[in-house]
Design a protein around this nucleic acid. Structure first.
Length: 613
RNA sequence: CGGGGUGUGGCGCAGUUUGGUUAGCGCGUUUGACUGGGGGUCAAAAGGUCGGAGGUUCGAAUCCUCUCACCCCGACCA
């Protein structure tokens, strides 16, 4: 923790709340549909409740955590030169026409008509809204660079909301946008992006999260470069690839694969593994179905995926991508290999062009206007491990049929090694065990993560689309260069729990804990005990600590268990035993022991030391 | 969107196959007593049109039809 922040915390008076006067509905059992620890524990601890799919109430305890995280975000954003604002969540869909993102977002967008029939949406992110504001409010290069951010509820109509707060349809997000006159140099995008990168590292560090920064795809937001901030956690939805030698880390979609090298005999070379055999595979367009029916492993399948070029001047109208059945085609890498835009082919159009969708084989390369990309692993004619001819199963280019013993040299119908419209290229997602792109000899490892932050270099994508340009000092009209930077605040809260809990409940990192100290009253009806608690709470508050006094008329066991469940970092127990010795019992949530007796005079300092470290 | 599953007091479940009186159980809640340092004991009580609509039947949580909600798995990879 930096000097500035601990001073800020100390100068603030801590909150004091009594359990009996707030609402913390703890429960012994979680709802049956809650599976992940963060979901179960946040509900059991009385932090959140589900209203409907992917939409949650934040009860007092949960809101306190959201506020703590938000405050850390604010402090670091402000320190990095940002200014907070608040944009509308209710937006006119007209705005999205300028960038075409109404289509890009599709069903993910919550859209509706108002009473006048005007098309509206609830903001899933705010590039267009802020650009619309900025293009009229920012009129001079002298106003740049500028960084504006907001903390706001966002709406995305997810196909499948899941895992409590980790993927909701309504969630709290910090989104920031930076504006620059140039990419490089002082005040440029690179500088602003780097400042945000550093701010994010500080934010997630302060939140007590164990995270990795990885290179990522920009996705529908667009732009040239991006990084994701991933909480390292096995229950995460995202797969990240890591090179243990160099520290290179990337989202699986983005991850490059090191040189896999051509086989000695060359691509496509090798004798057939047997006679080409056509087999009837009714209703088996998928790899999995075929494998089950024919009893072959996916790694022996050749998967042929049909794309069409989206650029008018593309070298070929169709692009077919061939990868091994156990691997995944990567659209971004295909785009790079082709050198132009591609999109998955429309099924009906592709069928008309002669592709037996569901049963396409590499032989479709013979159709008109086709460029074939083959991944190195799929271009092998010889099984290097076994030193035998590669056994390939692929489509038969007609409905409900596949072929066994496909051989590149014998069965393709053209000489793949020399044909102009056949290329070997790395076009699949990286997988564990692939060679590292950064260190020869090293192999990539796969890990799981929860994406809590994502930063993008947008460039002029939105300013060009929406006519946001200003005069520079040489009176040249220039597109404003933008960056955007998101943090899932509510998701970060869930990630904290996912990362930090035990059998008894949540173990909040002190910086985001709803309260720093819980004072458990053994006998709340005893006036002297209640007085001691009030006095202690006031002293702790003066020291900047947030205090929850458990004054409920419950049995001790219930209170201890609840204190553990809601995860307050320090528990002080006031009872006859300790009070008789002029002390209280001190126990850190992260300690497993029984706690220790601390003299009343020392306990405030002890708590502060424990919380502020 | 495809596949699978679940809807019964606040939470977790039984009962549905084979229709049959006032729909049960545990937790929680309320009241009282006894208790009092890791989810106590005893006694009493409140709380459910069995997701909704329609149908079959003397009779429906249970059978039929439609519908709604929610959960899990999968997925622009054919």
């Amino acid at each position: 923790m930096t000097q500035a922040t601990s001073e800020a915390t100390i100068s603030r008076r801590g909150d004091i709340q009594r359990w009996s006067r707030t609402l913390i509905p703890t429960a012994r059992e979680a709802p049956a549909d809650a599976e992940l620890p963060s979901h179960r524990l946040l509900v059991r601890a009385g932090c959140i409740r589900r209203l409907t799919a992917g939409v949650y109430d934040y009860l007092p305890l949960g809101l306190r955590v959201l506020r703590k995280i938000s405050q850390i975000v604010r402090e670091e954003m402000d320190a990095a030169g940002g200014s907070e604002l608040l944009l509308p969540a209710l937006c006119p869909t007209e705005l999205l026409k300028e960038t075409g993102r109404a289509e890009d977002y599709g069903d993910l967008l919550f859209r509706f008509e108002d009473r006048h029939g005007r098309d509206s949406y609830l903001g899933p992110t705010h590039e267009e809204v802020i650009t619309e504001m900025a293009r009229s409010a920012i009129t001079s290069y002298k106003q740049l660079p500028l960084n504006l951010y907001q903390i706001q509820t966002k709406y995305r109509d997810e196909f499948r909301p899941r895992a409590g707060l980790l993927r909701g349809r309504e969630f709290l997000m910090k989104d920031a946008y930076s504006f620059h006159l140039s990419i490089d140099g002082p005040g440029g995008l690179e500088e602003g992006y780097d400042a945000m990168y550093q701010a994010y590292v500080r934010i997630f560090t302060r939140c007590g999260l164990d995270f990795s920064v990885v290179e990522a795809e920009a996705g529908p937001i667009g732009g040239s470069a991006s990084h994701e901030f991933m909480v390292n956690c096995e229950t995460g939805e995202d797969t990240i690839m890591v090179c243990p030698e160099t520290g290179y880390a990337a989202n699986v979609e983005k991850c490059e694969i090191g040189d896999r090298g051509a086989p000695e005999q060359g691509w496509f070379a090798g004798d057939p593994s047997g006679d080409l055999e056509e087999v009837h595979t009714p209703d088996c367009p998928g790899i999995e179905d075929v494998c089950k029916l024919l009893k072959v492993k996916p790694r022996h399948m050749l998967k042929t995926v049909v794309f069409h070029a989206t650029d008018d001047d593309a070298p070929a109208r169709w692009v077919i991508a061939v990868v091994r059945g156990d691997q995944d085609v990567n659209e971004g890498k295909i785009r790079d290999a082709v050198g132009g835009g591609v999109a998955l082919a429309d099924v009906e159009k592709a069928k008309k062009a002669g592709f037996a969708i569901g049963y396409v084989s590499p032989r479709a390369v013979k159709l008109d206007g086709v460029l074939m990309l083959v991944d190195p692993d799929a271009a092998a004619g010889i099984d290097a491990d076994k030193g035998k001819p590669m056994f390939w199963v692929t489509g038969a280019d007609k409905k409900d049929h596949h072929v066994k013993h496909f051989n590149w040299a014998r069965d393709l119908g053209v000489d793949a090694a020399s044909a102009a419209n056949v290329r070997v290229a790395s076009i699949r997602n990286a997988a564990a065990g692939d060679p590292s792109p950064r260190a020869p000899g090293a192999t990539l490892e796969a890990r799981r993560g929860i994406e809590v932050g994502h930063i993008f270099k947008l460039g002029a994508k939105y300013s060009d689309a929406m006519g946001f340009a200003i005069m520079d000092e040489t009176q040249q009209r220039k597109s404003v260069i933008m960056g955007c930077y998101g943090i899932g605040v509510s998701r970060a809260m869930a990630a904290c729990v996912e990362m930090s809990h035990d059998d008894n409940g949540i173990v909040w990192p002190a910086a985001v804990a709803p309260y720093h100290v819980i004072i458990t009253l053994m006998r709340p009806d005893d006036a002297s005990h209640a007085q001691a608690a009030a006095k202690l709470a006031a002293e702790l508050s003066a020291r900047g600590l947030d205090v929850l006094i458990d004054d409920r008329a419950e049995r001790p066991g219930v209170k201890f268990n609840d204190a553990d469940l809601i995860g307050v970092p320090v528990r002080l127990t006031i009872g006859d035993k300790a009070l008789a010795q002029n002390g209280v019992e001190f126990k850190a949530r992260s300690d497993t022991g029984k706690g220790e007796l601390v003299p009343l005079d020392d306990v405030v300092a002890r708590c502060a030391a424990s919380v502020f470290e």
